[in-house]
Amino acid sequence: MTEEQRVEEFKRAVQAGRKVEAGDWMPDEYRQRLIRFIEMHANSEIMGALPERDWILRAPTLQRKLAVTAKIQDEVGHAQLLYRLVEDLGKPREQIFADLISGKSKFHNVFHYPTRSWGDVGVIAWLVDAAAVISQSALLKSSYAPYARTMRRICWEEAFHLKHGEDIVLTAMMGTAKQRAMMQEALERWWEPLMMFYGPPTPPEQDKDLAWGIKSRANEDLRQDFLTKYVPRIREIGLRIPDPKLRFDESAGRWVYSDIDWDKLVAVARGNGPASQQRLGFRRLSYEETAWVREAITGGAELVA
């Protein structure tokens, strides 16, 4: 069998539902796409810690403080699990971090935006995590079995984050006018990034990650699912969604919304978002300031009690 035939056979097998393990033979393109996809996922988890991290100190009660800290800790834990997958696929962790802080590799668009109030903490934990749960649940069917297994644990934890976020928003919406205005203002800033969350409506037949079975559902499909699940809930708790065109078209069986500026998404994801450079700068600073610790540990110093 030629190399080409072998690749074609592999592709047919994953499309028919075959699951691939780390030690299995895999085409180079599949490996590279997996690395890129999972690396971006991992980077997003760790970069996602930064916008929320500022609010660890600012949480208004002890219970919220503990919940916010635990939530961010979970996200970093997810990054840890995902980085291990990328390492197993052949990219060392130092290289992953070097590419992240130099801006060579990407992280998700939602983490390129600033957080301005406690409202952001609620909206991020509720709706950004809700959006993430929908795409991550679709990854439970990934053709790469170690990724699918990791996603099982991640989805389970994300479900708690959603509850925590929804509770922050709901508590404020039942509070004072100032608290309600804070949540509304946050939603207005986050709506566009949320609509961009799943990326442009690329036709499924042109999406290579779908063809290799790395992901299992098309972008627009995920967005429609998010709108179906969360638009009614957002309205029910008294928030206004800042899109006058947003409605469910009964005859087409789908949500209609204002045009999305996909060029803007591309620019944001390339590091030109409103907080991209500040976040990368902070990641770089904290990474450089702790370089000596990693050198000490890799130099043989053992962490044993």
């Binding site: 760790i46 929320e52 961010i72 800790q73 980085y83 904290s286 990693r294």
Partner: peptide
């Protein structure tokens, strides 16, 4: 949280 020297 989020910026320790090792992810672990």
């Amino acid at each position: 949280t989020g910026i320790a020297p090792l992810v672990e």
